Amino acid sequence: MVFRRVAAYAPPGATALSLGITNAIFGPRPGVPGFDLAICARHPGPLRTDLGLPLTVRHDLGVLAAADLILILPGVEYHVEASDPLLPALRAAHDRGTTIAAHCVGTFALAAAGLLGGLRATTHWQFADELAACHPEITVQPEHLYIDEGAIITGAGAAAGMDMCLHLIRREHGAGLANRIARGLVIPPHRDGGQAQYVSAPVPTDDGGRLAAVLAWARAHLGDRISVDLLAARALMSRRSFTRHFRLATGTSPHAWLRSQRLSLAEELLETSDLSIEQIADRVGYRSAAVLREQFVLRRGVSPSDYRRTFSRS
């Protein structure tokens, strides 16, 4: 469902980071088709953020009834009582087919509304055990950046909310718009939801920037045959050392990272070029159109041709 009207619910003590992410992704900006963004709360008026700064909220929960997309933002007060008017509003929106997303402790509101029963969900890794204990009917997967269950999407904590929102735009409006927004924010355009949200250590600083240079080289040569051994050699590392450094830096394996980069480039080419599926497969490094189709259907849920018909700007 393509969405234009976005309603973001701000709980008491709403985090300033989540408010900033919401406005950065869905707020007005030159050269990007606008979304109709409304911030709402239980009652209009002043609302304190986690920084103690007051936020003037103009809308109440009534805007949820007209939204195409509802975002539940995290806040200091994230436990929702059964009598909270937010819960029936969320259930009614879900019954209408509205897409509802929450990240970090905002996921607790979806759980309290009964919208996550039998589904997979994620939250900030620090709160995953609490969510699982309070709601055993949910399959909590704290290792994921975000989990897409169709009409319900949950995301991990902090900046992973940006990954979740970009995924929603990519899913409903195409890679071109998601990439334009990401470039404007100077952030990676796409991180797979299955990528680890918690990286145990930063990239070691004694590699002289070799790993970053190798990643940039790989992005520029996706059409070539790229092996882990080749990447390790360019980084002047053994295969074992390179794989370990790579996972520490990105939270995923070299193979998974390359696949993600190739499919993201394929999406953009499908939207913005007249290249055939065979030409795109060659451009992104797949040996045949059949392999591209197989990977695209497996990872994106549709065929390249169907994706092009949906999102092509030509």
Rank of each mutant, 00 (worst) to 15 (best):
A102E: 02
H103P: 03
H103N: 06
H103V: 00
C104A: 02
T107N: 13
T107A: 10
T107S: 15
F108D: 00
L110T: 10
L110E: 05
A111T: 01
A112T: 09
A112M: 15
A112W: 14
A113G: 01
G114D: 09
G114N: 14
L115H: 06
L116V: 06
L116S: 00
L116M: 14
G117Y: 11
G118S: 05
L119A: 01
L119N: 11
R120T: 10
T122G: 06
T122L: 12
T122P: 04
T123G: 04
T123F: 00
W125K: 04
F127L: 11
L131P: 02
A132C: 15
C134G: 15
H135R: 13
P136D: 11
P136E: 09
P136W: 06
I138H: 00
T139V: 15
V140G: 08
Q141S: 14
P142H: 09
H144T: 08
L145P: 00
Y146P: 00
Y146V: 02
I147E: 05
I147N: 02
A151K: 15
A151W: 12
I153D: 05
I153W: 06
G155M: 03
G157C: 10
A158S: 03
A158I: 06
A159S: 05
G161E: 04
M162L: 09
C165D: 12
L166A: 04
H167G: 05
H167P: 06
R171H: 09
R171T: 07
R171E: 06
E172R: 06
E172F: 06
H173Q: 13
A175V: 05
A175H: 01
G176E: 12
A178T: 03
N179I: 09
R180S: 14
I181S: 03
I181Y: 05
I181W: 00
A182L: 14
A182K: 01
R183S: 14
G184C: 09
L185Y: 04
L185N: 07
L185K: 05
L185Q: 08
I187Q: 06
I187G: 03
I187K: 06
I187A: 15
P189W: 03
P189D: 00
P189H: 01
G193V: 03
G194D: 11
G194T: 08
G194W: 14
Q195K: 07
A196H: 01
A196E: 11
Q197T: 12
Q197I: 04
Y198T: 06
Y198E: 09
S200I: 05
S200Y: 02
A201P: 04
P202R: 00
V203R: 07
V203F: 04
P204Q: 15
D207F: 08
D207R: 12
G208C: 07
G208H: 10
A212Y: 15
A212S: 11
A213Y: 11
V214R: 11
A216D: 12
W217T: 02
A218V: 13
A218K: 11
